[in-house]
Design a binder for these strands. Structure first.
Lengths: 250, 250
DNA sequence: GAGTGGTCTAGACCACCCT
DNA sequence: GGGTGGTCTAGACCACTCA
């Protein structure tokens, strides 16, 4: 047994043994891939070698690699090897950013308020928690070139998101999902969105720089982990007159 | 070998032998499933039995069944069996009907005008045709209980859609995609949609029963075949005040 | 308890890429 | 030619469902 195979086996043994082997293997591999051990230019070790390192059968290793390929994390090239997918940041971080404005520029995101509150009934239900459960609420303004275009109201369940409550606001960048991942270990994998139009109240009108009563588009998103657990409820409001939203349906 | 296993093996043998076994098996199984041999209430034969019928290994059968589950055609219930998924009609025909109104009711669709016209530049570009290419334009009103809620402007390239131009209007039901499939052999497989808000002009206002200048939501859809060829451009307008749109992002 | 899908293994052969 | 992923097989044991 080589040193590295020892490490790989240890990483696997450290995980909850009640989970199926393929689930533990998947978690161990994902952690290692996100850790930056490999670049998209060089192949991972061969499937057979990985299987040996982790002490699993080739079939189990192939099953997990297939899942990670389906998920968009890896890329297989027959005869050549298995590679990290390029543009992974675009995929994993921007995948849920659907408001279509000037090209692919990233808007800035400034957090206006951050407070702990009991979750309203509707939010608690969407998160699968009891009404009144403690939650973190973020009020956030997103802008292009200092021009506000989206007001966001974000609810995160506690204590899972306690690190987001405690971190310095200056540590939080323009995108939240990488923060969830790095501080809380939660990776967003899917979401439901619902859109409708309502009229701006005084607060939203002031933030967006329009008159109260002007139509605004509301996007309500419930974001889930890969396992399907809802972990974020987000309501975004933007001026209807300049709003664009794009979706690809497969 | 039983009679049915003979049939299953024959169905497999009739397919292009250059394809991998799992691809042939998948095609044979899909055809049989769509043929209505099983209902969602009764399980398919066990995986092991199916594998034997088709003369493939359990592993290969499981691989194909897993793919069909991922695709949404089947549903596995451990300890119980493998079942056709319910609401399959909803999936294949209503999959692109995203305007969310009272439950899962189907709105009626009435064609107001049908005419042959040169396609405007924007439409021609979306369809991958030259500007001015002949196209079929449908003007359509969709209602719930005789209450109009959506005005649709639909462009279809000719001559591919000539059968839709020539068929009696009374032969066209409330859903167009089954018509495309039956008359033209074109199956819609994916689509892009883009949403924005504009103000109702006189014609739209009259059809929707609102005042001119009221905000309406516009959904522009470019629908494609499974092969990815764009074959329909559709612009739908609905009253912003009652509009709801829902999407699942994976 | 009988039957189902879920997990995991071990090994064979092929198609493809690279040098 | 040597190594990679792709296909396919055979069989063992477990967890779950249902009568």
């Amino acid at each position: 047994m080589t040193a590295s195979s020892g490490n790989a086996r240890e990483a696997l043994a450290a995980l909850d043994p009640r989970l199926p082997l393929h689930a533990r293997l998947r978690e161990a591999l994902t952690t290692r891939l996100r850790g930056g051990e490999w670049t998209p230019s060089e192949p991972l070790p061969a499937e057979s070698e990985l299987a040996q390192d982790y002490g699993v059968s080739l079939g189990t290793m192939r099953r997990v690699l297939t899942e990670l390929v389906d998920e968009g994390l890896l890329e297989r090239r027959q005869g050549s090897g298995t590679y990290l997918r390029r543009m992974q940041a675009q995929n994993s971080l921007f995948r849920f950013f659907r408001h279509h404005r000037q090209g692919d520029a990233v808007p800035t995101g400034r957090i206006l308020t951050r407070e702990t509150r009991p979750a309203p009934a509707e939010v608690a239900r969407a998160l699968g928690k009891r009404t009144g459960t403690k939650a973190l609420r973020l009020h956030r303004l997103r802008s292009y070139d200092d021009e506000p275009f989206l007001v966001e109201d974000i609810w995160l369940p506690l204590p899972a998101f306690a690190p987001v409550r405690d971190v310095e606001l200056t540590e939080i960048g323009d995108l939240l999902y990488p923060v969830y991942e790095q501080l809380c270990g939660l990776v967003i994998g899917s979401a439901d969105e619902e859109l409708w139009v309502e009229l701006a109240d005084a607060e939203v009108a002031e933030l967006l720089g329009c008159a109260p009563g002007e139509p605004v588009v509301v996007v309500e998103r419930v974001a889930r982990t890969h396992a399907g657990d809802p972990v974020e409820v987000r309501r975004s409001r933007g001026l209807a007159s300049t709003f664009r939203y794009r979706v690809e349906i497969r």
